[in-house]
Amino acid sequence: MKLQVCIIMASFFYMASVDAKPCQIDRFTSNQLRLSSSYLSQAATSFTVSCDTRYAIQFNARNLTNTNGASYLVNQRNNKLRTQMNITGASSSRWNVPLVQPAGMNEKFVVLVQLLERPTAFTPAGTYQDHLYVSLEF
């Protein structure tokens, strides 16, 4: 069985006001999270946000199923493997909900993904993916 799991990270920035001071997101440790094909394997990425004013950060995923971070990876034939995603560094680990953060420099955020299903010999081969989005509103 050849099973490859991957989560692709994308970033989007929104500016709420032309008078707002700029916010910056950088220092990504990885733009792809690669899970091994074993039960409960984990992958993480981190990044920093610097903003002179209060801002809202929102984490979302293409295959997100609830605000607690439950999601799944899917292959080209729509086979699914369940995952759980967690956020540290934010005011909570809520997904697809704007999380208001105080102004600060180099505030670190970590996104951790864990495979919740045990791949077996019967798990269809393929590349399983999800897409993770991070949005800033300031």
Rank of each mutant, 00 (worst) to 15 (best):
S38R: 14
Y39R: 09
L40M: 15
L40A: 12
L40Q: 15
S41F: 15
S41R: 11
S41N: 14
A43R: 13
A43Y: 14
A43K: 13
A44N: 15
A44T: 12
A44Q: 15
A44V: 12
T45N: 07
S46Q: 09
F47S: 02
F47M: 00
F47D: 01
T48C: 01
T48E: 03
T48L: 01
V49E: 04
S50T: 14
S50V: 04
S50N: 07
C51W: 03
C51H: 01
D52K: 07
D52L: 12
T53F: 06
R54Q: 10
R54F: 08
R54D: 12
Y55N: 05
Y55G: 01
Y55I: 09
Y55K: 00
A56G: 11
A56H: 13
A56P: 11
A56M: 13
I57F: 08
I57E: 02
I57P: 06
I57M: 06
Q58W: 00
Q58E: 12
Q58D: 01
Q58V: 10
Q58T: 14
F59A: 05
F59V: 08
N60E: 09
A61Y: 03
A61H: 05
A61M: 13
A61L: 07
R62E: 08
R62V: 09
N63G: 02
N63K: 01
N63T: 02
L64R: 00
L64S: 00
L64A: 04
T65D: 00
T65I: 15
T65W: 02
T65G: 03
T65V: 13
T67H: 07
T67S: 09
N68E: 03
G69E: 04
G69M: 01
G69F: 01
A70I: 08
A70W: 08
A70S: 11
S71A: 11
Y72V: 03
Y72H: 09
L73V: 10
L73M: 09
L73W: 00
V74C: 02
V74I: 15
V74D: 00
N75D: 11
N75M: 05
Q76F: 14
Q76L: 12
Q76K: 14
Q76G: 15
R77F: 15
R77N: 15
N78P: 06
N78V: 09
K80S: 07
K80Q: 11
L81D: 01
L81H: 07
L81S: 00
L81W: 03
R82L: 10
R82Y: 08
R82W: 06
R82S: 10
Q84R: 08
M85Q: 09
N86T: 14
N86D: 11
N86A: 14
I87F: 07
I87K: 08
T88I: 09
T88R: 02
G89C: 05
G89K: 05
